[in-house]
Design a protein around this nucleic acid. Structure first.
Lengths: 342, 342
DNA sequence: CTGTTAGCGCGTTCAT
DNA sequence: ATGAACGCGCTAACAG
């Protein structure tokens, strides 16, 4: 490969001139700069990554720790990893993938060796060991997700409590009075993956505030049928349903309701909330309050870049407000004059 | 961070002694070596990645290019990326993720800047632009998948043709005489994603050799029902079915057959072949010839490491022999004395 | 506006 | 078996 020396020689200037002409960190006469640029392009010159890193003390690499639990949704996982990577590239960073048992050690390693300038943490549990580690590391860390103790941490995530409240509000605005929630499987909750809990709390708080009849279900299987039947057992005349669950369960809820003679949206209005998947191609599409990977990831990456580049960080948690996608699965209850949603 | 100088001082030796004590590239007296190791452990010393890279001309990083097409299966994608990453870590390499429109440029960049020691290519098309690029790059590249022109390339993949033949053989051994193949959606085939084509060819060749009645179907939807109906339209008395298709279609094939009064395995014996997903939790599990991500990825990563570390590469394509997982979805046809499978 | 030069931290050759 | 010293390619402080 061509080095900066080759370019300098070809352009008839010194190597610092080449460096500055390419980085733009100080002004160079238009004509000489063009000569440098031409020479660089001609030689196909790109600065050696490690030399640049060593000298500038910056690698332009973010590490991404993404452990895989038995119950994690590979598809959602990939989407987050990709969105982080895309957002990072937009800011001129590459991303190193840290997985499996290396999710924790990899954080230490990439920080201690100055491999990475910063670390993005995915799939955060309530009591995530990576939270403690992040507090010890000198390396900047941003969490996509919120552990229980956020002291000293920078976190970004959908506002799941607000998402749950928004779902309830929409159903209530449509005159729905008996609301069921289908949550995540027990195994996910017990691992204390954090967002289902936050959604659950938001739901409970809001229905309590509004004095709404409600029931919460944890699916025993990966199918919607049993979940729907659990809801109907507990609340036969349910007229509103919130789905904060995985795609396997959610995709078969429509058929399960139909099987029990309940139509969507008339008998039961349904909203999928805090979910990464689209319901657009479901047999029955649902109104959705998405967990928007793009929004979370680009926000997180931008924060991390800012922290790295300005070394100014105020630890704080950023909650992204929920948005609402109408697919026609919520309709006014019989005899109910719809009130405007909040 | 502690530098090698700190360790040298703490151990009362020179930096080269530290370097050799840690790398083991030349022998050091037991006692001094232990002093060095202790000092290093005590200081939490890890060599600076870029300094090490600059001096050794090796980054211990592999780049992984994994573009995402509209029809790619996120879940399978993630599994491959993870398996590559795990295999790489086992050999002391980290992996850089290259996605989206950066899949091609990223290859150039990571090679030209010496960011990566080698490149793993995922999701290979028949006419993949990354194949030409790989031929030009000085950087070692291994493909997981096989493009049409493999001249000068190193490729690793499941032997899809053998997998198709194995599926046919198993059905024939069970006395099945009219075999249907449900392939991938048209959009996947037309992009010339390569493995469905290779599977298709293997299937066609082998049924032709054996003189077996057969029919091939390309699903029009993402559901098994229409696909099964297409098969039944073309071949009402089908008694063997090979599924080389996506999880959405495959998971609903069992129910679709039942709906048309066909039982598995008696009326129709079914094999899923060349698929990344497990059918174990399907309503009706199928015998499976898996596309084993772990096998392909660790083989590819080991080859790449070998090429990087010995700079000895003979371009060649390695096809991994298919394996068979019995789930009870294949049974002898009525009146057929089962013959031993090959 | 441009050139000179001192490191960045480590691997490795050459001496001893 | 150990140490001294050079150089990897680049950035940035300093000098003009």
């Amino acid at each position: 490969m061509a080095t900066i020396d080759d370019v300098a020689r070809a352009a008839g200037v010194s190597i610092s001139t080449v460096s500055y002409a390419l980085s733009g960190k100080r002004s160079i006469k238009e004509s000489t700069r063009n000569r440098v640029l031409d020479a660089a392009a001609h030689l196909g010159y790109l600065p050696n990554a490690s030399a640049r890193t060593l000298a500038a003390n910056r690698s332009q690499i973010f590490a991404v720790t993404a452990p895989l639990h038995p119950d994690t949704d590979h598809s959602a996982h990939m989407v987050f990893a990709m969105e982080v990577t895309k957002a990072a590239r937009d800011l001129d960073y590459d991303t190193l993938l840290l997985v499996h048992n290396d999710a924790l050690d990899g954080m230490k390693r990439s920080a201690a060796t100055s491999l990475a300038d910063g670390i993005i943490v995915l799939d955060v549990d309530a009591h995530d060991p990576r939270a403690d580690l992040a507090r010890q590391l000198a390396c900047p860390v941003v969490f996509i997700g919120v552990p229980e103790d956020t002291t000293g941490l920078v976190c970004v995530d959908l506002d799941f409590e607000a998402a749950a409240a928004l779902a309830v509000d929409r159903l209530v605005a449509a005159g729905r009075k008996r609301i069921g929630l289908i949550s995540h499987p027990e195994e996910t909750l017990s691992r204390e993956s954090n967002f289902p809990l936050r959604f659950l709390h938001g739901f409970e708080r809001h229905v309590a505030e509004l004095g709404i009849e409600h029931v919460e279900i944890t699916p025993r299987t990966h199918r919607g049928l049993e979940a729907v039947e659990d809801v109907l057992d507990a609340m036969p005349d349910v007229d509103g349903l919130v789905l904060n669950t995985n795609v396997d369960v959610a995709s078969s809820v429509g058929a399960a309701l139909a099987l029990h003679g309940k139509s969507v949206p008339t008998d039961v209005s349904v909203i999928a909330a805090g979910v990464t998947f689209s319901t657009a191609r479901f047999p029955v599409p649902f109104d959705t309050i998405p967990l928007d990977a793009h929004a979370s990831c680009s926000a997180a990456v931008e924060m991390l870049a800012r922290i790295v580049e300005t070394s100014a960080s105020l630890p704080e948690t950023t909650l992204i407000p929920p948005t609402y996608i109408d697919q026609g699965s919520v309709a006014p209850a019989f005899g109910h004059a719809p009130t405007p949603a909040r």
